[in-house]
Computed example of a mutant assay.
Amino acid sequence: GLQYLFAATILTGLIQIVFGLCRVSRLMKFIPRSVMVGFVNALAIMIFMAQLPHFVGESMAMYVMTGGALLIIYVLPMVTKVIPSPLIAIIVMTMIAVFGHIDVRTVGDMGELPSSLPTFLIPNVPFSWETLAIIFPYSLALAMVGLLESLLTAQIVDDMTET
């Protein structure tokens, strides 16, 4: 249930702290570049596929704005690389939508946004070896994926920016 998810999330964070203290990131140099590129591309494909249902049945304004944003993202780097082109695309498209009073869906249209910060609660699960046996495999997997995603992305960015 939800309480076990919270417990697994806390354990995931603790495992990641242990990974950091043990300097597990040093092992990243043994991962081939093709694996890194494949991992990051798979992540991008998964994000893209998750966004596709939001494009079905939308207004023409949304499609035009999406095309305009993509145009800015891909053409602006040919002119200047001082400011990241995705940031410029977000700013320009937001200004067009707000000041042009264009009726496009927003994040707030997909559900209610909370106005307060979440409260931290200790999960209501028994603190026992049985609970640990239930949540540890999931927590370990999440910690490893989180570590790999963060470090591989950082390494890809380092390679792209030659830093």
Rank of each mutant, 00 (worst) to 15 (best):
S34H: 07
A133S: 14
M144R: 02
T131I: 01
T161I: 00
G68C: 04
M160E: 02
F127R: 01
V75C: 07
A7I: 09
I135D: 05
P86N: 08
R105D: 03
E112F: 12
L21Q: 15
L14H: 13
V82F: 09
F39N: 02
L121N: 14
R26E: 14
I88H: 02
P77T: 04
E162W: 00
A133D: 09
F55V: 08
I91P: 01
H101P: 00
L121E: 14
F19M: 11
K29P: 06
A50R: 10
H101G: 10
P126Y: 05
I134F: 08
T80A: 04
E58G: 11
G13K: 11
F99V: 10
A154W: 02
N124K: 06
L113C: 03
V64S: 08
Y63F: 15
S34N: 10
L27M: 14
L14E: 14
Q3P: 04
M62S: 15
V98H: 05
M93E: 06
V107I: 14
T161P: 00
I31D: 07
A8H: 04
P123F: 01
A143T: 03
L11G: 09
G108H: 12
N124A: 13
E162L: 02
A89Q: 03
L140V: 10
V92I: 11
F30K: 09
